[in-house]
Design a protein around this nucleic acid. Structure first.
Lengths: 352, 352
DNA sequence: AACATTTCCGGACAGGTGTCCGCGTCAAGC
DNA sequence: GCTTGACGCGGACACCTGTCCGGAAATGTT
């Protein structure tokens, strides 16, 4: 028996009634102390506080929340927990919510499981639901309709183009437009697209931005760009980019610039080029997307687009709070975030 | 007015009583249906089910949980949401818990805030608390004592050496021992440690593993290894590794092998070496730790240690479930995970 | 000592759900 | 027409907290 064990350990207390008995006060008095109501003698407040630290008693949150008191929580539905940009958004949002006194309930999306997740959020009576990432459009739309039916505010971060959805998203078209202008001014006229499909029906925002930039230079999308996405299987992004670049190198006239969907694919492409004895950016330029940490760790450091995560989450919080406090908006709120081009050393003047 | 709007939208229902009135049944009957009790006619079950999908009603989880029914939840306290290995563990654990019917409450640790977090978990009456990552030892120990006082099981993943803590951790000493054997067999005899401090009082597991391996080759830690950690400020790991390697290169006899704390530091070191005109592994070998995705994306691919995340989480679940179901163990449970050396191309025979 | 004031007690209710139980209803079988 | 089940109804209680309120007790004032 050590000295610290001399005083018998306090019992495990699970209700205010028990706790009040332990302190020797009425349950209501204890409750008043815990909720900082006036009209209490300082000595009794101290007595309760002391017993509180001694036993570590915490009131049952479920009962408190059932009463409608207590901090409300926000449900966060994540596309996955694997890609760095998405995690950074989660981390930033979680921190912001916490500082505002909200608890976050985090769930990870799985195809077809979103209904379960939203029902869980609704049963927890969350104050709002945030979706981060990209989802099955039809599924997401249905969920948002359900949430609206329950007068529960929502917000979609990243996924763009869902009808009636409040959305905060990066202006990817604008990002690609700026990126293309950067490359066009360097003299590039033929582009290899990596992970950016060129279907005629492609509703991909990015293609739109690329097309716009080319048109502003009097050029045409079909003749200047090329994509081999269909030929390669996308399992791991780095290898995907590597394989795609290899395809391009088999052409008689390979493009002088490669535009990748994200940083990993770009890095894979750079690797393939370097393995083929080509210099980046001497023989070919390569651009990424996301501005992840790896960008500065590469040789050469990668020219890319920054997602502006802090501003994104900041406006996300504004949209969220305005809904939680001010009620549901009549028309969906749409906010686009201006991207920032980050020019590093993977892009340079066109060789020929 | 479109056709789908013709039927008036179902009202927003927030309690079983309301819902029962809507269906035209007694509240108790509805409750029986929702909880799959026997003795109900199929037609009434269908009636309730139909109204359920129509209105999207969900019983108030707080009331259910207050009653003691419903799935219990597990609290997860994260060191941060920034480093890949930690996130991967979270993702794996969350998935496992979900498949077992547990909800995870995720909170992010901040120095000095752990008390708030644990009190939150306790007030939510979680079934157990999991810590993932490294924390302030004294703080963590206190929290664990608190949890034990509340008869709430706990588990620490990664952080090692907390008294009375149930722990699942990678055998980092063994990992370093194997790594050193690999390097020693390649002929290396002088080692630069990157991010691994060599204080005399260093209780760092890894140093122990390094010392053991050297002794097994009849070598001495002090004469064979060197560390410049004190000279450089660790803000961003890549730059940290780069700066450290530069320090080593100013020596008259730089080491032939560099052992880094993690992959980013290793990659920074490789960069510094390459910038100095040295070849890896021709002139010097470099090793990392964690086996993150970037390892295969580098040139050369990085020799590193795999954290064995799947096995880690698997045994973590076993330890967790045995506690949740079988009660608190008399003595702390300690499980170590065997690491796996991943040899790639950043290590090779010693130059001299 | 009589009074006013501060402070605490204890009963009560609400919040929504799960469950038990006695009772009414309805239909089927004789 | 009667009995017998099957099934739904609705009252009651428990889970735990926050809050209101009248009354009791303790404290302070004159």
């Amino acid at each position: 028996m050590s000295v610290s064990d001399s005083k018998k350990p306090p019992p495990r207390i699970t209700s205010t009634a028990e706790f009040a008995r332990y302190v020797g006060l009425a349950r209501t008095t204890v409750s008043r102390v815990l909720n900082r109501q006036p009209g209490l003698k300082q000595s009794t407040i101290d007595r309760v506080q002391h017993a509180l630290t001694e036993t570590g008693f915490t009131p049952n949150a479920y009962a408190t929340l059932l009463k409608g008191k207590g901090t409300s929580s926000i449900g966060i539905c994540m596309e996955n927990l694997l890609t760095p940009p998405i995690i950074l958004k989660l981390a930033a949002l979680q921190r912001q919510l916490r500082s505002q006194g909200y608890t976050s309930l985090i769930e990870v999306y799985a195809r077809g499981e979103s209904r379960t997740i939203i029902r869980h959020f609704l049963s927890m009576r969350v104050g709002a639901v945030v979706f981060i990432g990209h989802f099955d459009p039809a599924e997401l739309e249905t969920r948002i309709r359900e949430l609206s039916g329950h007068k529960t505010p929502h917000l979609v971060i990243d996924h763009h183009g869902i009808p009636h959805a409040n959305t905060v998203t990066l202006d990817r078209a604008q990002a690609m437009r700026e990126m293309m202008h950067h490359l066009l001014e360097l003299g590039h006229r033929s582009f290899g697209l990596l992970g950016i499909p060129l279907d005629v029906a492609s509703r991909l925002e990015r293609v739109h931005g690329i097309r716009t930039a080319l048109q502003e230079h009097g050029l045409d999308l079909q003749t200047c760009t090329r994509s081999f996405d269909a030929q390669c299987l996308r399992t791991q992004d780095f290898e995907f980019g590597r394989a795609l670049a290899r395809q391009f190198l088999e052409l008689k006239q390979p493009p002088t610039a490669y535009v990748a969907l994200n940083d990993e694919i770009a890095i894979g492409a750079i690797r393939a080029l370097q393995e083929a004895g080509l210099a980046v950016p001497g023989d070919a330029s390569v651009t990424g997307f996301n501005n992840q940490d790896i960008c500065t760790m590469m040789a050469p450091p990668l020219t890319t687009v920054d997602q502006q995560i802090e501003p994104t989450i900041k406006t996300a919080m504004q949209v969220l709070m305005s809904q939680v406090r001010g009620g549901m908006p009549a028309r969906p709120i749409l906010r686009t975030i201006k991207p920032e081009l980050v020019i590093r050393q993977s892009t340079g003047p066109a060789a020929r």
